[in-house]
Structure formats: structure tokens, C-alpha cells
Design a protein around this nucleic acid. Structure first.
Length: 286
DNA sequence: AAAGGTCACAACCGCCTTTGC
DNA sequence: GGCAAAGGCGGTTGTGACCTT
């Protein structure tokens, strides 16, 4: 039996959010905090589905969202993480402070998958494709202006595209300060094909990634002396964040990720890969 | 200048997981 | 243990700006 919809859709607004709706939602969350999404729209005076409110907040209105370019470093990290985690966008986003899963997912679909293909790499398997990449379709020199609404463009010259430096003008920051917010991320699944059954999950290939346990309780796990912070790290780049305690919750450095990734790759190259990876995974568990 | 195509991204949808009773 | 509500996730779609012809 199917579940009832999260809310009655009769009479609810859909589509793009207006500035007024954003303001209402922001002010309500400033006053009452996140959560109780189902009842939130009514209390906040919004004619929106609770899920829509949550999505709008998580992907756009949160103050800790990093606006602007995805840096080459982030670019590289996304590719690496995707090779390990597959289409687990929330997990990937969890390692990129200030970035949302939706943003990374979109960025992957529109930029990185094409980039990998152009390099002769299958974006699903991250393996070299036997066939040469399809000839490039015409490439636009286009203008993008991003003022926060819908799809706007920012000018990208051909030189910029070739040099792989995309230009994303900062999206407007609508909120200056808020009560501390955190996202719950979970590392509960250890396979790419696992998790949501509805997910096509890339190639369905099982990746022996360690089962990072639920990270709602912040944990630090160590591998060969390298500690990995597992937990709420979203506040790292918060401009408005002045909470020293939250600042102590630092995400892993790129170096630690690099090290973990290198170790993972080494295991993949060994003959007894599965056994090694299993023990590798176990070593990450507390 | 107009039409059609392309692209990027916000938002939606449906399913799964977690939580509380 | 079973059920329902709530939260969360990933895939997909809709929209509008920009580009090419």
C-alpha cells in the first residue's frame, strides 16, 4: 500500500520560490530552528509542501552554503569521492563543506561527467573507456548571470572552459546569521548499489567502501595514524559562525582524504583485493 | 530579428530509512 | 514486531537564459 503524500498538494504553491516565501521561511527557521517540516509551512504562513520547504532551506537558504565557483580542488575531490562512493551525493557533499548534494549532483551531471568522458574515462566506472570519446558537440560561448533565480548564466569564455576554470558568480546570500545549523549525514551504506532502492546508483557496481557508521554522534576514526573526523562539518566555512565549539569540528583535511584514497587505490591493485578491502573497511570501524 | 537548440540549475517525485508509539 | 509519520536521498523534470543558425 502506498503511503499518503507528505502533504495535501491542493492549493499549494509550486515552482520557483518568491523572495517573500524565502523571507518567510528564513525568518521562521531563524526563530524556531529546523525540523518539523510538515507543520512548518502552516506555521510559517507558507503555501508550500514541507518537503519543498526543507529542500529550499537545505539547498539554497542555509547560511552556511558556500556560494561561487567550485574550485579545481573541489572538482578533483568530487571526482575522487565519486569513484569511491558512486552517486552518493549526500556523502560527497558531506566532505565538501558548504556544498549541497543537489549542487554537486547537478555539477556532476552537467560538468564532471562530460569532462571525464572527454578524457576517455567512463564517469560511472571511472575506468578508461575502450572507445574514444564521442566527438564534442558544438561548444557554446555563453553568458551566465546568476542572481539567484532559476537558471541564469555567467559568461564563460572558450579559454576559461578550456582551462577548466568555470566561472560561477556567487549566488546571493540572503541570510546573514542564524542559529547554528547542522546537517545529518550518514555513512551507513557500504556499497554503491546499496542504499536507496530507487537509486539507479550509477553502474550498480559494488564498491567495498567501509561502512562509516551513523555520524550523528561525531566520531573520529583513525587509519594508520590518520584521524578522520566524521560528523557535522557543515559549519566550517560559515561566515557567520562564531561558535568556537562548532569551529572545533573541523572536516578532514584534503591530505587525510588523499591518504585514505591512496591507500584504497593500493588495495585495489592487489590480487587479493577483496580480502584486503574487507580488512581495510574493518580497520575504519570503531 | 526570430526560431530552435543547448545548457545549467532549482524544484519535484518517489522511494527508502529512521524514529516514536 | 508492526505501523505510521517524518526525514532524507537520488533520479528526473521544468524552466529560462543564452547561443547558433
Amino acid at each position: 500500500m502506498g503511503r499518503a503524500p507528505c502533504c495535501s498538494k491542493v492549493g499549494l504553491h509550486r515552482g520557483s520560490w518568491t523572495a517573500r516565501e524565502d523571507t518567510l521561511l528564513t525568518k521562521y527557521i531563524q526563530a524556531h530552528g529546523e525540523g518539523h517540516w510538515r507543520s512548518l509551512p502552516k506555521k510559517a504562513g507558507l503555501l508550500r509542501c514541507g518537503k519543498s520547504c526543507r529542500l529550499r532551506w537545505m539547498n539554497y537558504l542555509r547560511p552556511d552554503i558556500k556560494r561561487g565557483n567550485i574550485t579545481p580542488d573541489e572538482d578533483d575531490l568530487i571526482i575522487r569521492l565519486h569513484s569511491l562512493l558512486g552517486n552518493r551525493w549526500s556523502l560527497i557533499a558531506g566532505r565538501l563543506p558548504g556544498r549541497t548534494d543537489n549542487e554537486i549532483k547537478n555539477y556532476w551531471n552537467t560538468h564532471l561527467s562530460k569532462k571525464l568522458r572527454s578524457q576517455g574515462t567512463d564517469p560511472n566506472t571511472h575506468k578508461k573507456m575502450t572507445e574514444p570519446p564521442e566527438p564534442k558537440r558544438r561548444k557554446n560561448t555563453r553568458t551566465r548571470t546568476n542572481n539567484g533565480g532559476g537558471s541564469k548564466r555567467v559568461k564563460i569564455s572558450k579559454d576559461q572552459e578550456n582551462s577548466n576554470h568555470k566561472v560561477h558568480l556567487p549566488k546571493p546570500v540572503r541570510v546573514t546569521s542564524l542559529i547554528s545549523m547542522s546537517r545529518n549525514n550518514s555513512f551507513e551504506s557500504n556499497t554503491v548499489s546499496g542504499g536507496s532502492g530507487s537509486s539507479s546508483g550509477g553502474n550498480g557496481e559494488t564498491l567495498p567502501w567501509p561502512s562509516f557508521r551513523d555520524i550523528r554522534d561525531d566520531k573520529v576514526i583513525g587509519v594508520d595514524g590518520v584521524d578522520f573526523f566524521i560528523g557535522d562539518d557543515q559549519g566550517q566555512d560559515l561566515v557567520a559562525s562564531s561558535d568556537p565549539e562548532s569551529q572545533s569540528h573541523m572536516p578532514p583535511t584534503d591530505n587525510s582524504l588523499e591518504k585514505l584514497y591512496e591507500e584504497y587505490l593500493q588495495l585495489l591493485e592487489r590480487e587479493d583485493t577483496q580480502v584486503q578491502l574487507d580488512s581495510f573497511a574493518e580497520s575504519l570501524l570503531i
